[in-house]
């Protein structure tokens, strides 16, 4: 008997196809995010002053370069 991972297997074989599909999509995303983060350097505002604010309605900064 085909081993179902899900409790019901209401969609039959499609349960497993969807399940494996989700896994494959995430594995691809893992690979893409690794390659992108490896090859594309992040863009930082290296100046600490003057302080930028996140939006006009907040007085709080959203960037502070830690030393």
């Amino acid at each position: 008997m085909y081993p179902h991972i899900l409790a019901h297997g209401a969609l039959g074989i499609f349960d497993e196809i969807i399940f494996l599909g989700v896994g494959v999509v995430f594995l691809v995303m893992i690979g893409i995010s690794w390659i992108k983060s490896r090859n594309v350097p992040p863009e930082f505002d290296e100046t600490n002053a003057p302080v930028e604010t996140a939006s006009p309605e907040t007085s709080a900064p959203d960037r502070f370069k830690l030393d």
């Binding site: 991972i5 409790a7 995430f26 995303m29 893992i30 690979g31 995010s33 690794w34």
Partner: peptide
């Protein structure tokens, strides 16, 4: 280092799904 941290975020998001597989929702 940053690349490994980025990849691990996706791994953990997928890993959280295993909790759902044994949750009330699975039944």
């Amino acid at each position: 280092v940053r690349a490994f941290w980025a990849a691990n975020a996706w791994v953990m998001a997928l890993c959280m799904g295993t909790l759902s597989l044994s949750s009330h929702a699975a039944g």
